[in-house]
Design a protein around this nucleic acid. Structure first.
Lengths: 332, 332
DNA sequence: ATGAAAGCGCTAACAC
DNA sequence: GTGTTAGCGCTTTCAT
């Protein structure tokens, strides 16, 4: 059974107002009185009820994070790394994090937003599931500030922090071309999400700027799974590619698997550059060259923006882009 | 600006009690009245304030999950997979999940528990950071039921769901011995957490039951990192091992990396069995044999137990163990 | 330097 | 079938 402020007040022979002020250090309290209150709290093992506090003060010190995790998808690492950056900066500022998962499912996501809406969170950071067609202002009523991350919503209704995944992709394709590759396969998950679109745009731009033609037979699209990565790579092998770029991490794994199964020497027969830099990328033989995303920095930036808004800033919304970059190892 | 029940009541010309009962379907309301209330809610874009509801009714429909995620540690997959199982079963039962992260840090964990304690969560599932020496009843006051997962606390103060990682480990070592290996190296993260201890115990038991001696030169212990996995494997190579068992996934990666760097043919020169079954385990050449943990099932079981408790069950606490099992692929 | 008391938005016992 | 009303535990204005 938990005690209330009233119990503490009684025991310390003061008013609940005083107890409240002692706890929140919100007005001067004589040292004697303060001591009595602290003693009473301790003795009663009093823990303030933050639901009541939230109701009264309309603030909770909690901010929400909504990410699209799919079981055993390696993009989880990306989001966990973001979450880590977010957590750290948040804690430094006295906020707590509640993480929720949309499972990459729009309906689930909207439900989770509704849950957040009824919970007095003070801000929300969200990696939207459907940033192209869905109108997020349906459920985001401006009762708390929002920061979008990783995927840009069709209308900029809040600050947005993106990774410029085009930058690293361009670097990658540019390097492959400079190494003499002319048939460069491209494997990607479904288009329509910002990141996928940007990467493929950078691919075609790099080709173009080198005077090469975009050949749609060399571009394969399928759901982002290990198996699809493997399958699409197999199809590309029949197109006589000499190099391969894979636009996400899970398909990268599938692609490597396929090359190995088909005894393609990497990089002699087929060069490959993948996406996202994780420990196990080094484990393949040879170690994989990859485009690396500044995930931690993204999380950090998102929080900084959010806190600024919570503190009342109302400057125009901005879209920030943190550059990805190519990490060259043995596979190209 | 959000509307309150009072606004709705006024607009619908009924009492707040009626509005509340319409919303919660907690007593019969004439259809006419019900319609009026619904219309008013819609018109005002009314969304109930669940903080107020929680304060009043002492329930929130929210359960907490506290896991120890470390950035870019592959054990994240394990916990994310558990979280997935938990989420699914929870949603089926009308609960919402709040996920929080202890970062594998006891102090952070206890803080997060305190945060949970001040929010009306109705139950908590926790993978404890320090299950051996810390007394979790310090901060868990029984105001809501708790289920421990993955690591067994020193005292059983709630239902606990574990994975019997000994089972799979024993299978693995047993197989290696039957294949004729006599010098089997063992790489593990720090001992003292249940899972590590169980695995090494199974290793030594398997040796014993085959009449082999436990040779401490063949057992290497270090923090669970990619680099440590690599380093320890290197040390073991100097001990002329013919087979290697690695007791966690991240060190498995490091170990494979080391074998490849040293041009050890797998499994001819050095057989290897790792821990945890993830997509990229198939990507190494040859595909890795691993001990696989039923993570999803664990999450599911944990929720089932928790909900039982929330609904009032008070049978004695039990410890459940779900067996791990060996998946044989090419590396042994 | 401290206290009294009015609510925050909701639920539920009690009344009719 | 519906309304009145007393709180849940806290913060905060207005007194003193």
């Amino acid at each position: 059974m938990n005690r209330s402020m009233k119990d503490v007040a009684k025991k310390a022979r003061v008013s609940t107002a005083t107890v409240s002020h002692v706890i929140n250090e919100t007005r001067h309290v004589a040292e004697d009185t303060r001591n009595k209150v602290h003693a009473a709290m301790k003795e009663l093992d009093y823990r303030p009820n933050s639901v009541a506090r939230s109701l009264r003060s309309r603030k909770s010190n909690i901010i929400g994070l909504l990410v699209p995790l799919v079981a055993s998808d390696t993009s989880n690492f990306f989001f966990m790394s973001i979450a880590n950056g977010i957590e750290q900066v948040l804690k430094e500022n006295g906020y707590n994090l509640i993480l929720s998962n949309s499972s990459e499912d729009l309906e689930v996501e909207q439900d989770q937003i509704k849950v957040f809406n009824t919970q007095f969170i003070e801000g929300l950071i969200i990696a939207p599931v459907d940033s192209h067609t869905h109108d997020y202002s349906d459920n985001l009523h401006g009762e708390y500030p929002t920061v979008f991350i990783d995927r840009k919503p069709k209308e900029v209704i809040s600050d947005t922090v993106l990774i410029d995944s085009g930058a690293g992709t361009y670097e990658a394709i540019d390097l492959l071309i400079k190494k003499g590759h002319r048939r460069i396969g491209y494997v990607t998950g479904p288009l329509g999400i910002t990141t996928s679109d940007e990467r493929i745009e950078a691919y075609s731009r790099a080709l173009r700027e080198h005077g090469m033609k975009y050949n749609e037979n060399l571009v394969k699209i399928a759901p982002a799974t290990f198996e699809a990565g493997e399958q699409l790579t197999k199809e590309l092998l029949e197109e006589d590619i000499t190099a391969l770029f894979v636009a996400n991490n899970i398909m990268t794994m599938g692609a490597v698997h396929c090359l190995q199964k088909n005894d393609k020497a990497i990089p002699e027969e087929t060069a490959i550059i993948g996406f996202d830099d994780y420990e196990w990328m080094k484990v393949t033989s040879p170690p994989l060259s990859v485009v690396k995303q500044p995930s931690y920095e993204l999380g950090k930036k998102a929080v900084e923006l959010l806190i600024e808004r919570i503190q009342g800033s109302d400057k125009p919304y901005e879209v920030y882009r943190l550059p990805s970059k190519l990490v060259v190892r043995g596979s190209c």
